[in-house]
Structure formats: C-alpha cells, structure tokens
C-alpha cells in the first residue's frame, strides 16, 4: 500500500504542554488549593483568636502579615479565608459548569424547539449584569452560603451554556456524529460517546475562566458587606473589615486583596499556558 502514515509518535493526550507563565500559574493555584485544604494545620493562630494588643500592626517576625483591626494574626486569617474564597467559588463554578454543560450539550444534540427555548432563556439571563443581579438576590434572600453559591451559579450558567453549546454544535455537525445518528444511536449515547469526549479542553478552559469571575464576584460582594457573613470571613470580607487601616497603610487591607489577585492571575496564566492546544483539537497533526 502506498499511503504514507504521518509520523508515528504518539501525541500525549491532554498532556502538560505548559509555557513558563502557565507553569508558574499552575504552581500558584496548586499552592492555594493545598492551603485551603490544610488551613488548620498551617495556621499558627485560630480564626477568632486575638493575639496582639496592636491593631493594624505592621509586618513582623511574629505576625508575618501584621495584625488586623482587632489584633488578630492576618496570615492565619488569610489561610482560613482561602477555604471560603476557594471553596465557595469552586462549588459555584462546578454547579454552573454542570448545568451549563449538560443543558448546552443537550440543546445541541436535540436541536429544534428545545434548543430554541433554552437558548432564548439563557440569552435573557446572560444580559443581567452579574454583580447587580447578585445584589438583588442578596437583598431578597439574605447572604447565606447557599444563596451566594446559588446566585453565582445562576449568573454564570448561561455563559457556560453558551460555550458548551457552541462547541457541541460544532461537533454535532461533524460527520462522525451524523454517522452515529444514521446508525440509530440514541441522543444520550451520542452525547456521551461522541460529543462530550471532544469537549474536554475547551470546557476545562472555560471552567477556569468562570472560576476567576466567580472569585471576583463573591469577593466584591463580601467587600460590599453583602457576601459571606461574620464570623466567617473570606478574603473580600477581610479587606472590608480592615478598610479603616488604609490610612495607616496596614498590610491587613492589602494582603487579602493581594491573595485574591495571586489566585485569579494564577488561574488565568494557567489557562493561557495551555489554551493554545485547544485549536489543535481537530487539526491534522502532521
């Protein structure tokens, strides 16, 4: 036979192909996730423990990030705050992604009126400015954890839906899906066997972006005092509680905000690091 095969080396599936910045981002994000998991073991002081007579204390050997408006250790507060900031955002992102991907793939695979109605409703939801919608929800239902997670998930589901649907529609038009349809496969089999496995990369990328948005949204709410309520405190709340320290240049104001920035920048760098591989999905890899 005279058909030359392309280079026979195997491509690393979903393999790590990170740029330097991407690697850096991955390390930062991984570090924060570890911190969130191991906060009690890492923190020197308790969450509510007042350990110093000085409020808004500067950085020191004892208190590496200074003390807050009550004289608590800021480093410990940030370590504990990671659980709320990352945990809540992850929960909301996962919920949004789950709804978005399921509905998006279903809409693409079934098409017709179902797709039409769903897409229209999502368009309506997506045109609600996020923070404002959250304000209305919090005003109506109060700022409990389920309300916060639910609200964030509702705000970001339409975006996840759109991405998932558009990727799925592209895949759905491909001939291998037509072949499956002509074979007589059921819609759900087509979704699981043919469409979903090809959505992994774009959807993961989108998951990361959505996580960043949700972190920013929930922190902003906390900063406004309308997010997670005391005594629980995420990084946004820490900034708010200590805003009086701004005049003294206290690290207690800046550090929690910096923590948010490192997390979100880390995720973004990570996504950017292997975002380039997305385009390769269907490219002839010769």
């Amino acid at each position: 036979m005279n058909e030359a095969a392309p280079a026979t080396h195997r491509r690393v599936r979903l393999g790590v192909h990170l740029s330097l910045a991407g690697l850096f981002g991955t390390i930062v994000v991984g570090g924060w996730i570890l911190v969130a998991l191991a906060a009690p073991a890492l923190a020197q002081h308790g969450e509510a423990q007042i350990v110093s007579g000085t409020v808004f204390g500067p950085m020191s050997r004892r208190f590496p990030l200074g003390t807050d408006y009550l004289g608590r250790d800021v480093l410990s507060l940030i370590l504990y705050g990671a659980r709320y900031t990352i945990g809540l955002a992850l929960a909301a992102t996962a919920l949004a992604a789950l709804c978005g991907i399921t509905l998006g793939t279903l809409a693409a695979a079934s098409g017709g009126a179902f797709d039409g109605v769903l897409s229209r409703s999502m368009d309506t939801l997506i045109s609600l400015p996020g923070l404002m919608f959250a304000l209305v929800m919090v005003a109506a239902l109060g700022a409990s954890v389920p309300v916060l997670v639910g609200t964030a998930a509702v705000i970001y589901t339409p975006g996840a839906f759109r991405i998932a649907r558009s990727v799925a529609v592209d895949i759905n038009a491909m001939e291998f899906v037509l072949v499956a349809r002509a074979r007589g496969e059921k819609t759900h089999t087509i979704m699981i066997e043919e469409i979903l496995p090809n959505m992994v990369l774009p959807v993961l990328t989108d998951f990361g972006l959505r996580f960043v948005f949700i972190v920013l949204l929930l922190s902003s709410l906390s900063f406004l005092g309308l997010g997670i309520q005391p005594p629980a405190a995420d990084w946004g709340s820490l900034v708010r509680e200590n805003i009086q320290g701004l005049g003294y240049g206290a690290p207690a104001v800046i550090m929690p905000a910096v923590a948010i920035a490192t997390l979100t920048i880390g995720v973004n760098l990570m996504i950017d690091g292997f975002g380039g591989r997305r385009r390769r999905l269907f490219a002839d890899e010769r």
Binding site: E175, V179, E193, F282
Partner: peptide, 8 residues
C-alpha cells in the same frame, strides 16, 4: 478528518 471521532 471529520468522519472519525478524534477522541476515540
């Protein structure tokens, strides 16, 4: 190129 599922 498009007739075969690239993930299988």
């Amino acid at each position: 190129d498009t007739a075969l599922n690239p993930a299988r």
